[in-house]
């Protein structure tokens, strides 16, 4: 029973991982250790959710993937390239990795449309007309076609985060990283952002999502990684992790969430 719950579709199909964290460690300049020998894989088309208490290193882990944080030990492989190698071209790797931040980080001095078009224009040297066409298409996709001309400050938090997703998609990345994309939102706006993410997942986008939204992890993730104190506690399919957590620390984490928010999502 446990075994069938624990099978990983992508791994079984023999595909090479798109992102492989191979025993990575990370410490901040002040010496505080945030990751210790963390390993997990993300296969093409998979949605991997990172769960765990605040300060467990989830955000640091995905920030290492696009090299916003330097890995101090271990290997981090993206599309077969070891991005921890000295001679790696960080800029070229980042062009293929989309990132969505907790606080949106839209550029406040640009219109919403320009926010979405600016990546292709500056980084990929696309013609402006082409980039703006793509930006309009993506704004429509996240349900904000009528907001292209306004400044980000005129949008709600949920709308801003949808623009931020469109902005990352404009680079046509091979993987999208989400760093607690709904944590800064008022509760009534969480749904609209998760709906966009769910749609992306259904279209086959490879996603790594740091989240506290257990229902999203349960229903959308293909693989769940539970972390604590910078270490991997356990990993598995959402069904297995949520229904039969093996580790005491996973159960304790879920227990705390239950105290805070009521029930855990099931089935």
């Amino acid at each position: 029973m446990t075994d069938s719950l624990d099978t990983r579709k992508m791994a079984m199909s023999g595909a090479e991982p798109l992102v492989l964290l191979d025993g990575i460690s990370h410490a901040y300049p002040n010496g505080k250790v945030s990751l210790t020998e963390l390993s997990f894989a993300v296969h093409p088309g998979e949605v991997v959710c990172l769960l765990g208490p605040s300060g467990s290193g989830k955000s640091t882990a995905i920030r290492c993937v696009n090299m916003l944080e330097p890995v101090t030990a271990g290997r981090l492989v993206f599309e077969g390239i070891d991005v921890t190698a000295k001679d790696v071209n960080q800029v070229e790797v980042r062009k293929r990795v989309g990132m969505v931040f907790q606080n949106f980080e839209l550029f406040p001095h640009m219109s919403v449309l320009k926010n979405v078009a600016i990546g292709p224009i500056v980084s990929l040297k696309r013609p402006k007309a082409e980039a703006y066409d793509l930006a309009r298409e993506l704004l429509a996709k996240v349900g904000l076609s009528d907001k292209g001309d306004v400044l980000p400050s005129q949008l709600s938090g949920g709308q801003q985060q949808r623009v931020a997703i469109a902005r990352a998609l404009a680079m046509q990345p091979d993987v999208m990283l989400f760093d607690e994309p709904t944590s800064a939102l008022d509760p009534e706006m969480v749904g609209e952002v998760l709906a966009v993410m769910r749609k992306l997942a259904e279209e086959g986008m490879t996603m790594v999502v740091v989240t506290h939204e257990m229902r999203f992890a349960r229903n959308v993730a293909d693989w769940v990684v539970v972390m604590e104190d910078g270490r991997l506690v356990e990993e598995g399919t959402p069904e297995r992790i949520f229904e039969q957590p093996r580790m005491e620390r996973t159960r304790a984490f879920f227990g705390k969430l239950e105290e805070q928010d009521g029930v855990l999502p099931t089935g």
């Binding site: 696009n66 990132m99 931040f101 980080e105 550029f107 600016i118 500056v122 902005r167």
Partner: peptide, 22 residues
């Protein structure tokens, strides 16, 4: 905020482009 620069870098901009554009 340093995150503004990080957002620009995440879009594949070089450090110089991040400064000039963002």
């Amino acid at each position: 905020r340093p995150q503004q620069r990080q957002a620009a870098l995440s879009l594949g901009m070089t450090p110089a482009q991040s400064f000039i554009v963002v």
